[in-house]
Structures are given as structure tokens and as C-alpha cells.
Design a protein around this nucleic acid. Structure first.
Lengths: 251, 251
DNA sequence: AACATTAAGTTGTATATACAATTAGTCAAA
DNA sequence: TTTGACTAATTGTATATACAACTTAATGTT
């Protein structure tokens, strides 16, 4: 071990953008990349501070800062006397916060885009009216949008929108702005509810989401109100192998 | 100004709990208290690093760390060349209630009972220690309990418990009182997190839950803390065709 | 065999020092 | 008046050093 550098650290800065940035920031960026690309697997031990110091010729305090901040961000875990390890962290979303899939994808560094599969306007059926607490003569929009993260489908969104409260819904370009963002402007929500369950998608849904048959999905049904009128109801389908809901509470 | 200390810093550590803690942590705690009690108002300028150094006789790097971390946490804002300021109060997000399966079953008029499948005690493995934020020399309990509603399995619970915080966990009768109820008495939780996803159970889990192969399950991984120590980590598996999570929010 | 001690390696914290980068103000020259 | 240079104050980053606290493995002792 004497003079050789740690195998995980060869060409450590090699494929990083050559932006001028502080050393600690570039260290964080490099390590984040190793983890998110899977080059460093979960629970794997990462080089010690001393090894990084030796390999990269930086100060230990700088390495310490990078590792400490990444630990605070949940990417790594550390144990005094033992070492530093890659934490288990999949793509996750805040549970029971109204969420915006585009923002979430962006926040974890993914490439977001969306494809609108359907957008129609008509009167609510009896079933819909009951389900949504509307009247059958009210106009509603129905839209189906497929959301992608890094060119992989991450959410299939079926949505029904109250056309009285959001009359311009049909003219929006949801590949640019998500329905959530538009609806918040059109009719700020005051209340909402969620129903989360594990379901087996049908053949068409499997095809759209690009998953195998028998791959479970996390289904979220969400309804939001503005005052006493329902604004929108959505059914969000996420592939189980690519998606987790995350929630945190404190007393 | 020459020798006098900053007026905001007189008796700075006075009304703090005298717990042994690192200087930077006590600094953070003291400043957090000033801000949350309103003694330091939003947008007010806080003493500069140099002033704190002079008043409290600590190193500037220590002060810098405290202020930097508080800034990352959103309590303060800083501007190079200008100073450090109290940030605007941040919005509180909706939380997700910790739930008790026995109470839930009872609340919808079901008949509840449970069967304990396993209960052992040993030291945490390295993987567990990393996963749980414990030390490898800490003792933990492992338990597996199957919960029934009207004689149908409704939840398979695999749980790891910090034996230091809940030493009598092994002597409880969880067919009478759920782990959640006991743990709340033993070590009141102050923080927690949830991870929800859709998974496909393995053959043994299918058999225990009395479901068909390919029936998706809703898996909840939950970790709870008491102060900075983890109390318990659990994996809760619910048959997708018999279980839903429900949440409500209002603004 | 069981237990205690020691050593080596690792992370955690604290300090002193140095220089860079940014901002606001001062003051002099055009 | 405007411009520009300069200065002081402040935060931002990087390093070297030191010691504390913890974990594991090896070693020695009973």
C-alpha cells in the first residue's frame, strides 16, 4: 500500500467538467458522480480521508469538509473509527407534500422531459361527477401525460381538471410547464388528500412505462380543492423499481 | 468598539443547557435559540465572525463552521463582504402521522390479533450499523411479527430495535401490545422518516401474507429517532389488494 | 479459554494562519 | 459631478497541526 494510490481514486477528477470551483466542491461533485452512476455501490466503503489526501494532494480538512457535507446531505454515512460508506438512497419524493415531478427530477440532477398523450374536454360522466364531487353538467379536461427522467418513464399521469376553475388548461403546453405549476396559478389549492397503494399495472400501462409484466407500481391518487370546489383529481403511476416516496417528521 | 464585546453576545452561553457538546454545536444551538425566540429578528444583522471570536474566545474556523451550517439549514443568510443575517422564517411542511396498525384495524371495526414469528438479540452487523446510524458494538433486537385483521394477514413487520434505549423490548408480549406502543413509552420519538415503495414479495413473504405470487405489496421502511439516537427501524409489508395509505393536507 | 492491553487506523473537533473575493465607504483627481 | 483608486471590513477557502474518540485486530496475561 505504501506509495500506491487507492484504486477507487485513479483518474478521480478525470471526467469532471473543468469549471473553476473550490476544491471541496469539486470533491463533492466527483464523489456524487461516482455514487449516482453506481461506480461506487451502496454500502461500499469509500477511501479514507488520509487516502484521499495522499492521492489528490489536498488538505485533510478540505476532504473532511466535503465528506461531512455529503454526509449531511445523506449521500454518505460515516462512523468514527470505522470509515465512510455509500448510503442507500434511491430517487425519492416527499410524501404528503404536493409534488412537482419536474422539480424533483431536476433536484436530483436528472434530465426531465414529458410527452402529452391525450388532452380532451367534455362534460363529466356520472361516475366522475360522484368521484370528484362535481355536477354532471360541469365541463372537465382529461389529460394523460408521461413524464421522463433521463429518457426513462418515471410517472404516468392521468388527470381530470375542473374546467370552470381552470378554463385555459387545454391551451397549456405541459411539456414545458407541469400541470401542477399551472394549476397552482389558476386556482391555489387549500386542501388535498392522497391515497397510496401498490398495484399491478395493465398491459398498456406496462408498455407506456417500459416495464415488465408483473412489475409492481406505486399508485397515488390525489384530489385537491380550492375552497369547497375540487380543482383536480389525478392518478399517478410510478414504476416500483424506479421510485420511492419519502417523508420526514419531527415532533 | 475597541475592547467592548458585541451587545448581542453578552451572556451568550448563559441560558444554554450545560450538556457536553462540541463548541460549534453549542454555538449553533445558542444562535438557533436567539432566532427562534425572536431575540434576534429576521433580517437583523448578526455579529461578524471576528466579533464572535473576540467575545467568546474561540477560533474563527469554529465560528465559521457554525454559521456556515446554519446557513445551509436555512436559518441564516450570508453575503461575502457584507455580513451574516437572520433569514426569513421558513414554511413548515405537512407531516405524515406515525401509525399504529392495531388502532387502525380497530378504528374500522376489524378484529385485530398478532403472531410473533421471531425475537432475537445480538450485536449490530457492520451493514446494519451503517444503515441504522448505530455503532457495531451496540446490542439490537430483531423481531418479526405478523399482524392480522379479521384473521387475514394485513402487515408483516420486520423490526430492529436499539437495545440500549429499549432494554426490555425482548420481554414484551407483542400479541397484546404493539411494538409501536411500547417503544413510545420506552424512548419517545422526536424524529422519523418513511420510505414507501411498491415491491414484489418473495415466496416466503407471500405465504405468510397469504397472497398469490405476483401480488404487489406496499412496503414502508420507517426509522425513528429519539434525540440523535436511532430507536428502531422497521420494514412493513402490506398486501396491495388489502391496504391503502391515506393522507390529508390543508394550507 | 477468557480476559485485558496495546497498537494501528479512522473519523471528530479545534486552532492558527494565510490569502482570495466581495462590499461599502473614503478620498483625490479629472 | 463623476470617475477611479484605495482602504477597511467581511465572508470564503485552503492548509498544517494537534489531540480526542472510536473501532478493529493483534498481542499478552491469567
Amino acid at each position: 500500500m505504501a506509495n500506491s494510490i487507492h484504486p477507487l481514486l485513479v483518474n478521480f477528477f478525470a471526467d469532471l467538467p473543468d469549471t473553476p470551483a473550490p476544491i471541496y466542491a469539486r470533491l463533492k461533485q466527483a464523489i456524487t458522480q461516482k455514487v449516482t452512476t453506481g461506480e461506487w455501490q451502496a454500502n461500499q466503503r469509500v477511501p479514507s480521508e488520509a487516502e484521499i489526501v495522499k492521492a489528490l494532494n489536498v488538505s485533510r480538512m478540505t476532504v473532511n469538509r466535503a465528506l461531512r457535507e455529503l454526509t449531511a446531505e445523506g449521500l454518505l454515512t460515516r462512523q468514527q473509527g470505522l470509515g465512510t460508506f455509500v448510503a442507500q438512497k434511491k430517487a425519492h419524493s416527499a410524501l404528503f407534500e404536493v409534488h412537482n415531478i419536474a422539480e424533483e427530477v431536476a433536484s436530483r440532477g436528472g434530465q426531465y422531459h414529458a410527452k402529452q398523450l391525450q388532452l380532451t374536454k367534455s362534460k363529466a360522466s356520472v361516475e366522475e361527477a360522484i368521484n370528484l364531487g362535481m355536477r354532471t353538467n360541469q365541463e372537465i379536461f382529461r389529460s394523460v401525460i408521461l413524464h421522463f427522467e433521463d429518457n426513462q418513464p418515471i410517472q404516468l399521469e392521468e388527470r381530470v381538471v375542473n374546467a370552470t376553475l381552470a378554463p385555459e388548461y387545454g391551451e397549456q403546453d405541459f411539456t414545458q410547464e407541469t400541470p401542477y405549476v399551472y394549476l397552482m396559478k389558476a386556482a391555489p389549492m387549500t386542501e388535498g388528500e392522497h391515497l397510496v397503494e401498490a398495484v399491478l399495472p395493465n398491459a398498456r400501462e406496462c408498455e407506456l412505462l417500459d416495464i415488465n409484466d408483473h412489475e409492481p407500481c406505486l399508485q397515488i391518487k390525489r384530489r385537491t380543492w380550492s375552497g369547497d370546489q375540487i380543482v383536480t383529481a389525478a392518478r399517478l403511476l410510478h414504476p416500483g423499481n424506479r421510485f420511492q416516496l419519502f417523508g420526514h417528521f419531527s415532533s
